[in-house]
């Protein structure tokens, strides 16, 4: 079964992780964006990470995409988009982009928006959070605001960077102004559940969501 879709965006695409991506994942994690995050010195856990990406999506706990830039035939892996702390009943999730240094702001924003829109239409999520850790690139905050996110709180020392060092966490949120889905059993209201291989109209209205 396929839980994580391939999604095109302007200038590239996001796609599910496969075992062939271990080298690309290793390269991404050699350039940690978050303060205190250590670069791994081997690839042992990255195969497990591919397994986890499938399990997370299947159990609606998270979703991970590889971010590729370029056209078919010349695609280059430049990062990852992740949804985590997915709370299906609370209609919310957190998002994160890990990019290589060459990932442009335009492609970062386009990939983020594409994944956000997919999770909103498919799973009726209305609330998307993003944590910016003090020490990360300041330009990411501007990018988030341009994408419609708003700074809601600053969690003091919310991220541990070392044995006794901490960084503040700026907590951004984007709330979608859409009606909540009408509760229904799996299979009702043309809702195909999690399995993307089943028919799916892509319409929030047809899948139990009301008009905004």
């Amino acid at each position: 079964m396929n839980f994580t879709p391939e999604l095109p965006f302007d200038g590239g695409r996001v796609r599910p992780l496969t075992y062939d991506d271990v080298d690309a994942l290793f390269e991404i994690y050699q350039h940690p964006e978050i303060p205190g995050q250590h670069a791994p010195d081997n690839k042992d856990n990255l195969t497990r990470m591919v397994d986890l990406s499938v399990q997370m999506a299947a159990t609606q706990r998270g979703m991970m995409w590889l971010l590729e830039v370029g056209d078919e035939g010349s695609r280059e892996v430049q990062g990852m988009v992740s949804a985590y702390d997915w709370q299906p009943s609370q209609l919310r999730t957190m998002l994160r982009v890990d990019g290589l240094p060459q990932l442009s702001s335009e492609h970062r924003a386009a990939a983020l928006n594409t994944c956000l829109e997919f999770m909103a239409s498919k799973y009726h999520l209305r609330n998307f959070g993003y944590q910016w850790i003090a020490g990360q690139d300041e330009a990411i905050k501007t990018l988030l605001e341009n994408c419609g996110f708003t700074l809601s709180a600053t969690l003091r020392d919310g991220w541990r960077t070392g044995t006794e060092s901490f960084a503040d966490v700026a907590q951004f949120y984007k709330l979608l102004d859409v009606a909540k889905p009408v509760p229904g059993r799996l299979g009702e209201q043309d809702n195909p559940g999690q399995n993307l291989d089943k028919s799916f109209s892509g319409s929030a209205v047809n899948n139990g969501g009301g008009e905004a």
């Binding site: 609370q90 209609l91 209305r126 700074l151 809601s152 600053t154 003091r156 907590q171 949120y173 709330l175």
Partner: peptide, 16 residues
């Protein structure tokens, strides 16, 4: 110390 308001965190009795 007050740090802010996290929006729509819990669905409770029909409200966010």
């Amino acid at each position: 110390t007050f740090e802010g308001i996290l929006p729509a965190q819990v669905e409770y009795e029909g409200d966010s």
